[in-house]
Design a protein around this nucleic acid. Structure first.
Lengths: 110, 110
DNA sequence: GTCTCTCCCCTAGATGATCTAGGAGAGAGC
DNA sequence: GCTCTCTCCTAGATCATCTAGGGGAGAGAC
Protein backbone atom coordinates (compact mmCIF):
# COMPACT_ATOMS: atom_id res chain seq x y z
CA UNK A 1 0.00 0.00 0.00
CA UNK A 2 1.51 3.29 -1.05
CA UNK A 3 1.81 5.98 1.56
CA UNK A 4 -0.69 8.76 1.49
CA UNK A 5 0.51 12.29 1.37
CA UNK A 6 -0.55 13.17 4.85
CA UNK A 7 0.94 10.06 6.33
CA UNK A 8 4.21 11.73 5.65
CA UNK A 9 3.43 15.21 6.73
CA UNK A 10 0.58 14.82 9.12
CA UNK A 11 0.28 17.90 11.21
CA UNK A 12 1.18 20.46 8.59
CA UNK A 13 -2.38 21.08 7.47
CA UNK A 14 -3.05 23.67 10.13
CA UNK A 15 0.10 25.46 9.14
CA UNK A 16 -0.92 25.49 5.49
CA UNK A 17 -4.36 26.82 6.28
CA UNK A 18 -3.14 29.52 8.63
CA UNK A 19 -0.54 30.66 6.17
CA UNK A 20 -3.09 30.79 3.36
CA UNK A 21 -5.46 32.84 5.44
CA UNK A 22 -2.65 35.21 6.32
CA UNK A 23 -2.80 36.26 2.67
CA UNK A 24 -6.44 37.24 2.98
CA UNK A 25 -9.91 35.96 3.69
CA UNK A 26 -10.95 32.79 1.98
CA UNK A 27 -13.68 30.24 2.11
CA UNK A 28 -12.89 26.56 2.63
CA UNK A 29 -12.98 25.58 -0.99
CA UNK A 30 -10.82 28.56 -1.88
CA UNK A 31 -8.24 27.67 0.73
CA UNK A 32 -7.81 24.22 -0.71
CA UNK A 33 -7.50 25.62 -4.22
CA UNK A 34 -4.96 28.21 -3.23
CA UNK A 35 -2.78 25.68 -1.45
CA UNK A 36 -2.89 23.41 -4.43
CA UNK A 37 -1.85 26.26 -6.69
CA UNK A 38 0.95 27.63 -4.58
CA UNK A 39 2.34 24.16 -4.00
CA UNK A 40 2.30 23.62 -7.74
CA UNK A 41 -0.16 20.78 -7.49
CA UNK A 42 1.76 18.79 -4.93
CA UNK A 43 -0.50 19.42 -1.96
CA UNK A 44 -4.06 18.26 -2.49
CA UNK A 45 -6.30 18.78 0.44
CA UNK A 46 -9.04 16.34 1.08
CA UNK A 47 -12.36 17.88 2.04
CA UNK A 48 -12.71 15.30 4.75
CA UNK A 49 -9.56 16.71 6.29
CA UNK A 50 -10.18 20.34 5.49
CA UNK A 51 -13.49 20.94 7.20
CA UNK A 52 -12.61 19.22 10.45
CA UNK A 53 -9.40 21.24 10.45
CA UNK A 54 -11.26 24.52 9.92
CA UNK A 55 -13.60 23.64 12.71
CA UNK A 56 -10.66 22.84 14.98
CA UNK A 57 -8.87 26.07 14.16
CA UNK A 58 -11.97 28.12 14.80
CA UNK A 59 -12.50 26.35 18.11
CA UNK A 60 -9.00 27.34 19.11
CA UNK A 61 -9.76 30.92 18.22
CA UNK A 62 -7.12 31.11 15.52
CA UNK A 63 -9.56 31.84 12.74
CA UNK A 64 -13.04 33.30 12.61
CA UNK A 65 -15.77 32.88 10.05
CA UNK A 66 -18.68 34.70 8.50
CA UNK A 67 -21.07 33.89 5.70
CA UNK A 68 -20.90 35.93 2.55
CA UNK A 69 -21.35 35.62 -1.17
CA UNK A 70 -18.52 34.27 -3.28
CA UNK A 71 -17.23 35.51 -6.62
CA UNK A 72 -19.47 32.93 -8.20
CA UNK A 73 -22.49 34.29 -6.47
CA UNK A 74 -22.80 31.47 -4.01
CA UNK A 75 -23.13 31.39 -0.28
CA UNK A 76 -19.73 30.73 1.20
CA UNK A 77 -18.25 30.72 4.67
CA UNK A 78 -15.31 33.06 4.73
CA UNK A 79 -12.53 32.49 7.20
CA UNK A 80 -9.92 34.93 8.36
CA UNK A 81 -6.97 34.85 10.68
CA UNK A 82 -7.40 36.32 14.16
CA UNK A 83 -4.71 38.01 16.21
CA UNK A 84 -4.10 34.83 18.13
CA UNK A 85 -4.02 33.01 14.84
CA UNK A 86 -1.19 35.18 13.64
CA UNK A 87 0.86 34.32 16.70
CA UNK A 88 0.04 30.69 16.23
CA UNK A 89 1.13 30.87 12.63
CA UNK A 90 4.47 32.38 13.58
CA UNK A 91 4.95 29.64 16.12
CA UNK A 92 4.08 26.89 13.72
CA UNK A 93 6.34 28.27 11.04
CA UNK A 94 9.24 28.37 13.49
CA UNK A 95 8.47 24.85 14.57
CA UNK A 96 8.34 23.66 11.00
CA UNK A 97 11.71 25.20 10.24
CA UNK A 98 13.20 23.64 13.32
CA UNK A 99 11.91 20.18 12.61
CA UNK A 100 12.38 20.09 8.88
CA UNK A 101 15.88 21.38 9.45
CA UNK A 102 16.51 18.56 11.86
CA UNK A 103 15.28 16.02 9.35
CA UNK A 104 17.60 17.49 6.76
CA UNK A 105 20.49 17.07 9.16
CA UNK A 106 19.63 13.43 9.57
CA UNK A 107 19.29 12.94 5.84
CA UNK A 108 22.64 14.55 5.18
CA UNK A 109 24.50 12.65 7.85
CA UNK A 110 27.10 10.09 6.90
CA UNK B 1 -1.83 22.00 25.03
CA UNK B 2 1.41 22.38 23.11
CA UNK B 3 1.88 20.30 20.02
CA UNK B 4 4.05 17.26 20.28
CA UNK B 5 6.92 16.85 17.94
CA UNK B 6 5.46 14.05 15.98
CA UNK B 7 2.14 15.73 15.62
CA UNK B 8 3.91 17.97 13.22
CA UNK B 9 5.97 15.47 11.36
CA UNK B 10 4.15 12.25 11.77
CA UNK B 11 5.29 9.83 9.16
CA UNK B 12 8.93 10.77 9.05
CA UNK B 13 10.02 8.26 11.64
CA UNK B 14 10.43 5.45 9.12
CA UNK B 15 12.54 7.73 6.99
CA UNK B 16 14.76 8.62 9.91
CA UNK B 17 15.24 5.00 10.88
CA UNK B 18 15.97 3.81 7.37
CA UNK B 19 18.46 6.58 6.82
CA UNK B 20 20.19 5.83 10.09
CA UNK B 21 20.49 2.17 9.25
CA UNK B 22 21.91 3.08 5.86
CA UNK B 23 24.95 4.25 7.78
CA UNK B 24 25.45 0.84 9.34
CA UNK B 25 23.91 -1.77 11.60
CA UNK B 26 22.41 -0.55 14.82
CA UNK B 27 20.22 -1.78 17.61
CA UNK B 28 17.03 0.04 18.50
CA UNK B 29 18.45 2.03 21.34
CA UNK B 30 21.42 3.01 19.23
CA UNK B 31 19.20 4.19 16.39
CA UNK B 32 17.36 6.56 18.68
CA UNK B 33 20.63 7.88 20.07
CA UNK B 34 22.13 8.43 16.69
CA UNK B 35 19.12 10.32 15.39
CA UNK B 36 19.14 12.52 18.43
CA UNK B 37 22.80 13.28 17.88
CA UNK B 38 22.66 13.97 14.18
CA UNK B 39 19.60 16.17 14.62
CA UNK B 40 21.46 18.11 17.29
CA UNK B 41 19.01 17.13 19.95
CA UNK B 42 15.90 18.25 18.11
CA UNK B 43 14.54 14.82 17.28
CA UNK B 44 13.85 12.70 20.33
CA UNK B 45 12.41 9.35 19.58
CA UNK B 46 10.00 7.83 22.00
CA UNK B 47 10.53 4.14 22.65
CA UNK B 48 6.84 3.60 22.38
CA UNK B 49 7.10 4.82 18.81
CA UNK B 50 10.44 3.27 17.98
CA UNK B 51 9.75 -0.37 18.62
CA UNK B 52 6.43 -0.52 16.82
CA UNK B 53 8.13 1.23 13.92
CA UNK B 54 10.98 -1.27 13.84
CA UNK B 55 8.51 -4.10 13.90
CA UNK B 56 6.58 -2.52 11.06
CA UNK B 57 9.69 -1.99 8.96
CA UNK B 58 10.83 -5.53 9.48
CA UNK B 59 7.40 -6.81 8.53
CA UNK B 60 7.67 -4.90 5.28
CA UNK B 61 11.04 -6.50 4.63
CA UNK B 62 12.90 -3.21 4.64
CA UNK B 63 15.11 -4.12 7.56
CA UNK B 64 16.26 -7.39 9.08
CA UNK B 65 17.40 -8.19 12.56
CA UNK B 66 19.71 -10.48 14.48
CA UNK B 67 20.69 -10.74 18.11
CA UNK B 68 24.22 -9.92 19.04
CA UNK B 69 26.22 -8.42 21.86
CA UNK B 70 26.55 -4.67 22.11
CA UNK B 71 29.60 -2.57 22.90
CA UNK B 72 28.42 -2.59 26.49
CA UNK B 73 28.39 -6.34 26.58
CA UNK B 74 24.65 -6.63 26.53
CA UNK B 75 22.28 -8.58 24.36
CA UNK B 76 20.97 -6.33 21.65
CA UNK B 77 18.91 -6.78 18.53
CA UNK B 78 20.81 -5.40 15.60
CA UNK B 79 18.92 -4.13 12.59
CA UNK B 80 20.23 -3.56 9.11
CA UNK B 81 18.83 -2.27 5.88
CA UNK B 82 17.84 -4.81 3.24
CA UNK B 83 18.02 -4.31 -0.51
CA UNK B 84 14.34 -3.47 -0.60
CA UNK B 85 14.91 -1.17 2.30
CA UNK B 86 17.45 0.80 0.30
CA UNK B 87 14.95 1.32 -2.46
CA UNK B 88 12.34 2.32 0.04
CA UNK B 89 14.72 4.79 1.59
CA UNK B 90 15.42 6.41 -1.76
CA UNK B 91 11.71 6.67 -2.38
CA UNK B 92 10.97 8.17 0.98
CA UNK B 93 13.76 10.67 0.65
CA UNK B 94 12.41 11.78 -2.72
CA UNK B 95 8.96 12.04 -1.27
CA UNK B 96 10.19 14.06 1.65
CA UNK B 97 11.96 16.50 -0.64
CA UNK B 98 8.88 16.83 -2.78
CA UNK B 99 6.53 17.49 0.09
CA UNK B 100 8.74 19.64 2.23
CA UNK B 101 9.53 21.67 -0.88
CA UNK B 102 5.83 22.11 -1.47
CA UNK B 103 5.30 23.30 2.06
CA UNK B 104 8.11 25.79 1.61
CA UNK B 105 6.40 27.10 -1.48
CA UNK B 106 3.23 27.65 0.48
CA UNK B 107 5.11 29.33 3.31
CA UNK B 108 6.87 31.66 0.92
CA UNK B 109 3.79 32.62 -1.04
CA UNK B 110 2.42 36.10 -0.81
C1' DG C 1 -37.93 24.61 -17.93
C1' DT C 2 -35.15 20.88 -16.81
C1' DC C 3 -30.45 18.76 -17.01
C1' DT C 4 -26.10 18.73 -15.79
C1' DC C 5 -22.02 20.94 -14.15
C1' DT C 6 -19.50 23.22 -10.87
C1' DC C 7 -19.20 25.47 -6.59
C1' DC C 8 -19.53 25.00 -1.84
C1' DC C 9 -20.91 23.06 2.60
C1' DC C 10 -20.88 19.07 5.76
C1' DT C 11 -20.55 14.36 8.50
C1' DA C 12 -20.00 9.51 10.50
C1' DG C 13 -17.04 5.94 11.00
C1' DA C 14 -12.62 3.65 10.15
C1' DT C 15 -7.69 3.81 10.11
C1' DG C 16 -3.23 3.83 11.93
C1' DA C 17 0.94 6.10 13.64
C1' DT C 18 2.25 7.80 17.74
C1' DC C 19 2.13 8.62 22.87
C1' DT C 20 1.48 7.31 27.71
C1' DA C 21 2.80 4.63 31.03
C1' DG C 22 4.16 1.23 32.32
C1' DG C 23 7.22 -3.75 32.95
C1' DA C 24 11.53 -6.50 32.90
C1' DG C 25 16.31 -8.63 32.57
C1' DA C 26 21.16 -8.15 32.96
C1' DG C 27 25.99 -6.03 33.22
C1' DA C 28 28.82 -2.75 36.00
C1' DG C 29 30.38 -0.02 39.67
C1' DC C 30 30.39 0.67 44.55
C1' DG D 1 23.41 -6.33 47.45
C1' DC D 2 22.17 -1.81 45.55
C1' DT D 3 21.56 1.16 42.07
C1' DC D 4 22.49 2.80 37.48
C1' DT D 5 22.28 2.35 32.79
C1' DC D 6 21.52 -0.30 28.80
C1' DT D 7 18.28 -2.70 26.21
C1' DC D 8 14.07 -4.89 25.05
C1' DC D 9 8.98 -4.82 24.97
C1' DT D 10 3.58 -4.00 25.26
C1' DA D 11 -1.43 -2.57 25.97
C1' DG D 12 -4.47 1.00 25.58
C1' DA D 13 -5.65 5.72 24.42
C1' DT D 14 -5.46 9.61 21.40
C1' DC D 15 -6.42 12.20 17.45
C1' DA D 16 -5.53 13.88 12.74
C1' DT D 17 -6.67 12.24 8.60
C1' DC D 18 -9.13 9.37 5.04
C1' DT D 19 -13.12 7.09 3.00
C1' DA D 20 -17.24 7.62 1.32
C1' DG D 21 -20.67 9.43 1.23
C1' DG D 22 -24.91 13.50 1.23
C1' DG D 23 -26.98 17.99 -0.23
C1' DG D 24 -28.28 22.71 -1.91
C1' DA D 25 -28.00 26.22 -5.29
C1' DG D 26 -26.29 29.17 -9.40
C1' DA D 27 -25.45 28.92 -14.42
C1' DG D 28 -25.26 27.44 -18.97
C1' DA D 29 -26.98 24.25 -22.60
C1' DC D 30 -30.75 22.62 -25.15
Amino acid sequence: MAKKQADLLQGTLDLQILKTLALGEQHGWGIAQRIQQTSEGVLNINQGSLYPALYRLEEQGWISSSWDVSDNNRQAKYYKLTRTGQKQLAEEVANWERLSGAIELVLQSS
